[in-house]
Design a protein around this nucleic acid. Structure first.
Length: 135
RNA sequence: GCGGAUGGCCGGAUGGUCGCGGCGCCCGCGUUCCGCGGGGGUCGAGGAAAGUCCGGACUCCACGAAGCAACGGUGCCGGGUAACGCCCGGGCGGGGCAACCCGACGGAAAGCGCCACAGAAAACAGACCGCCCGCGUGCGGCCGUCCCACGGUCCGCAGCGGGUAAGGGUGAAACGGUGGAGUAAGAGACCACCGCGGGCCCGGUAACGGGUCCGGCACGGCAAGCCCCACCGGGAGCAAUGCCGAAUAGGGAUCCCGCGGGCCUUCGCGCCCAGGGCAGCUUCGGCCCAGGGAUCCGGGUUGGCAGCUCGAGCCGCGCGGGCAACCGCGUGGCCAGAUGAAUGACCAUCGCCGUCCUUCGGGGCGGUACAGGAUCCGGCUUACAGGCCGUCCGCGCAC
């Protein structure tokens, strides 16, 4: 079955405590946060699309927040889950180190590619995308 | 050995690094609820979790009962089950040498409707070709007589009148079938068998089967066109539903007054009549409403909590009943509860399948499916790499 908001089909994943960084990573869950992120900067890569924004003054200033979106365009439930889990894995690995405190990030999965692209390449993609988006 | 039929089962394994959701436990901090940090334990997708096609549980909504109507569904019989359109057994029909498989499988002598094309004719009989009988006007032949004319109880063709429906041919289907007897030719007009219908007897719980007697050939097909009959069914669904909290109201609750008309020796909301509403109509019973004021509560959306997972539960073994589906008893084991939604990411080794190479040790390359809970359960259907086990049938070979 599809999630209740399948037509939107965004996804979230929690992230673990980073080993050696001061700020913590938390999770985007509100639809409004996703909408705000989609209006900010975006960077398309072969395996995914990255959206990023610096939070406004009236929002929590501390920590990196991340959300994931895998719509039905990505495939059936199994394909969506796999894409989301791989995105979550690279985010957990890189964002504590390369993300910026006070920013929101959204990673959007792509059909076929997100699930099949070699892991090291996918990770390199995210590193480059973060670099471009911060510039 | 080859080919086939059928039932059941599995559907990757191990290890490492990092990580996620639920629930207990321990430590530290803050210590009022409760919250924060750390550690460790335990559980954590499927045979279809899928399609959402049936059946239920559960929740809310709808005034009750009976009858009728409408709508929808099911449709041989018996059994199983909480229930089913599911399952098991049986019957009948069809296919196959067989194992076995398939079947909307009640009713067409209640009614309506339809039956394309072809064909003479498609439902109620009728008659295109043909067959037979009669007539002998026409044409031709033959004969009387060699020719014309004329004639002939002769022959053929055409024509006219009548009989017939066996044969031809069309079609998915042709007004029972085969044979006999009969006839001018023919026909259920007659006879036998088969088919059809009815009565009786026997077997079976039944569907149905067997036997016997009688009837008359009457009754084409389609009910998956309408319809008839029997049985079943109220609606919506966990985004149901309940609770809590926060910002702006059409709403709701309680109380008070009031609330259609008429009757009166009885002024009592006592009696009579009436309006509207209560998912179609009728009957019976019952309930509610009508205008104003006061007070209180509180809402479309969002968030949190509950519902939320142990239940007609699943699996193994044993005993008992049953042909079986299944049921009973005992015993052991197992059972996730997320909610922007966990059950993973990556690496290594191995397994399995295909293919190529091989010095027969092995090696290279490729593949490893379909698909992931969202209230729960019983079915059905559909998808699926590769593989395992059993039973049966036919053929061939050996004995």
């Amino acid at each position: 079955m599809t999630p209740p908001e399948a037509s939107q089909a965004d996804r979230q994943v929690a992230a673990g405590a980073p080993p050696a960084v001061s700020f913590r990573m938390s999770v985007l869950k509100k639809r409004a946060d996703f909408l705000r992120a989609s209006r900010a900067r975006r960077q398309a890569m072969p395996g995914f699309v990255l959206q990023a924004r610096r939070r406004a003054d009236d929002e929590p200033a501390q920590g990196v927040r991340v959300g994931f979106t895998c719509s039905k365009k990505v495939g059936n439930a199994v394909a969506r889950n796999r894409a989301k889990r791989r995105l979550r894995a690279i985010a957990r690995e890189l964002l504590p180190r390369e993300g910026r405190d006070g920013w929101d990030y959204v990673l959007i999965g792509r059909r076929e590619v997100t699930a099949s692209r070699p892991y090291a390449t996918l990770r390199a993609d995210l590193s480059r995308a973060l670099d471009k988006v911060h510039r």
